[in-house]
Design a binder for these strands. Sequence first.
DNA 1: CGAATTATCGAATGATTTGTTCGATGGCTT
DNA 2: AAGCCATCGAACAAATCATTCGATAATTCG
Lengths: 193, 193
Amino acid sequence: MVDKEAFRKKIIISAGQIFSRYGFRKTTIEEIAKALKMGKSSIYYYYRSKEEIFEAVVLHEANILRNELTTAIKAVESPVDKLKNYVFVRMKAFEKLSNYYNAIFDKNLDHFDFVEAIRARYDREELAILRLIIYLGARRKVFKVNNSEYTAMAIQTTLKGLEVPLFWKKKEMDIDSRLNAILDVLFYGIVNA
Amino acid sequence: MVDKEAFRKKIIISAGQIFSRYGFRKTTIEEIAKALKMGKSSIYYYYRSKEEIFEAVVLHEANILRNELTTAIKAVESPVDKLKNYVFVRMKAFEKLSNYYNAIFDKNLDHFDFVEAIRARYDREELAILRLIIYLGARRKVFKVNNSEYTAMAIQTTLKGLEVPLFWKKKEMDIDSRLNAILDVLFYGIVNA
DNA sequence: CGAATTATCGAATGATTTGTTCGATGGCTT
DNA sequence: AAGCCATCGAACAAATCATTCGATAATTCG
């Protein structure tokens, strides 16, 4: 027993790649095992079930997303760029994660509750980040907003609305230009003339 | 009975998207049917089996590839650019088709024989195209080659060698720069100084 | 060395999925 | 209304898959 925890991490890294490519349903334990050059029964020495692996993967990805978002908004100075970076990083991450989602919601609508829990927590964190960006922008008079809280919520709603076509259409959608259009609208309605 | 053939085409278009995303094994008839908003048994009114759909899809994609290649080499004038375009279009197409392949060769090594047939015919066509490009380049003294036939075969061998890492590694490979490197080597060994 | 424990494996299994069939039915056209 | 056309749901057999378990190889440790 040298480093069991390290190998558990190797599993979620490897499984994460496969899950993100094929989704939960279409990913088999044997694929995960073969990617690690093991027999599939050996996987169960580290995790109790496929669901448990999936949970670990989602948790891991959520942490990565959180880090990417914070570094992305720290990377630039102006509130406009902060908000831009935030939206872009968030959307690119969700695009990558879309397979996880349409895998979950595909057949069995009884979606795992831990995903809901992560989601709820993430929503709160996102709102806090947005509120901060808006607040700083307003304080510097770059944004004209009356209430940072409600404005942040409005933006969050818009972003959530974007997720739907992102997940379900997949094809025939130029996500980048659409994103830019939304940001334009957002800014022209927000930025001081 | 208005246009049964048109609907068969709609099926292979829709099925082609799913096959290219998930491969043969992971694609289910129900998915194909649902994408067309039909019951899965209705599919069998148009095609006899999943394999038959797959065969139609591969045939269709092969024709598209052929068209893309010919228009790509007609689009430019110089033999160098023709060869460049050819290689790039070919590789991008194979990247898209890689799912089909690793789906076939994944488990059952008894690969469908119609794929082999298409493959063989495509190989001959490719050789003819390459030979023509090389021949025209040599005639214009842009290429220095002794035998167009053998040079074309050498290039084809190189391209085939590129397919292997393209199909199996998938990650951690910068295909574009690698392609450029190969083209550089190819040209510096071929172009008149 | 040899015993104990750690890690891996193949085979077995029970549940689920999935390709395919078939008979029924609703909507056309004539 | 009669007859084909297209679609469907139910049914089924075969295949797939997650999970378990006992055995065994590898490693640690006395």
